[in-house]
Write a protein that binds this DNA or RNA. Sequence first.
DNA 1: ATCGTTACGTAACGATTGGTATGAAATATG
DNA 2: CATATTTCATACCAATCGTTACGTAACGAT
Lengths: 199, 199
Amino acid sequence: MGRPRAFDVDEALDAVLCVFWRKGYEGASYADLTEAAGVERPALYSAFGNKEALFRRALARYYERYLDFIPQALQLATAREVAAHILHGAVDLNTRYAEHTGCLGINGVLAGTDEAEPVRQALIDARSAGEAQLRDRLERAKAEGDLPASARPEVLAAFLMTVSHGIAVQAKAGFSREKLSAIAEQALATWPVGQDPAR
Amino acid sequence: MGRPRAFDVDEALDAVLCVFWRKGYEGASYADLTEAAGVERPALYSAFGNKEALFRRALARYYERYLDFIPQALQLATAREVAAHILHGAVDLNTRYAEHTGCLGINGVLAGTDEAEPVRQALIDARSAGEAQLRDRLERAKAEGDLPASARPEVLAAFLMTVSHGIAVQAKAGFSREKLSAIAEQALATWPVGQDPAR
DNA sequence: ATCGTTACGTAACGATTGGTATGAAATATG
DNA sequence: CATATTTCATACCAATCGTTACGTAACGAT
């Protein structure tokens, strides 16, 4: 009974999801959200509750719609395949949409208001400079025979930066020093490949 | 000439640096900054300029005071040592202070207001659940002989999550799909160790 | 002692934030 | 058709954001 809803709740949620993906939780204002959803402010409140509840709904939808490659990966035959599928699935998802790169889960707390964009760029530039120095050092190592001829210094440098950033995220999430240290060791070691039980 | 400054600029900058480290750029309000610095608002403006300039000053100080292990690492003898020193240096820095974990550069855009803390926790929990599933899957792989007996599934799962998060950060920073894909391959491969030219 | 200059604390600025009160409009049911 | 119920859009709320006038106080130079 009563007046029927004039907008599609799922469509609105999808629109809101994209805004959160691009701008993060705090960076997305209701002005942004209502504009994207094409729905007035009180309509979002009545349909989803407050901003936090709205974000949680968007996050749940994100997991089922975009992070479905993870449960898929878990069903593959070998651990190596699982790992490969997860990593390449992440790469694909994070680069699939030009307008909202990265992952909603990370961007949710990593992105922010448009006014903070110069600051983000400054951080990116600083990291980029550090990576360049590292790459130069690894180029030299290759030239000196300290790295094999097949090594690609720019990939190795980027890999180290990536792991470092991942460690920073995990540390912020509360990981212990011991756990992070083990991760660092793993990054330095071989991925353990056992005998395939199938053959 | 004129009235001399009644506070120490470097001390104020250090205090401000810690606030940015813990709360991020947008998450740190001037109420937080002035309280930590023990200095009134206009004093920060006259000494550093606006908020963005203040953050850039803090960032520069962070690089020279806390990220000094990176130039140190670049001077080590072998590429392997460089890599190890960088990763373990990152682990150490990110877990050194309990009150502001993680890295300022990442937190600068990853952290936020205190009101958003429940949302951050929700994201952490969601990722944690995914990691648990992955760990279970790798436990099974180990039991099935798909992973060697020496493998530690919880470390491998955490490692994969870490690399995924690092990839998400790099994607947000604008890395190309090809580059991220190469990073993923590197994470799956052996760290290339060549012959040490010294021995 | 006076003047120019600078820093100080108070107090306020306009803008924007997340969140609502409110009354008209629209539907299903009687 | 009348009524109960729900959604709609407008308009507003208090709070907080980054930023800045403003008058006073403290200095060096004259």
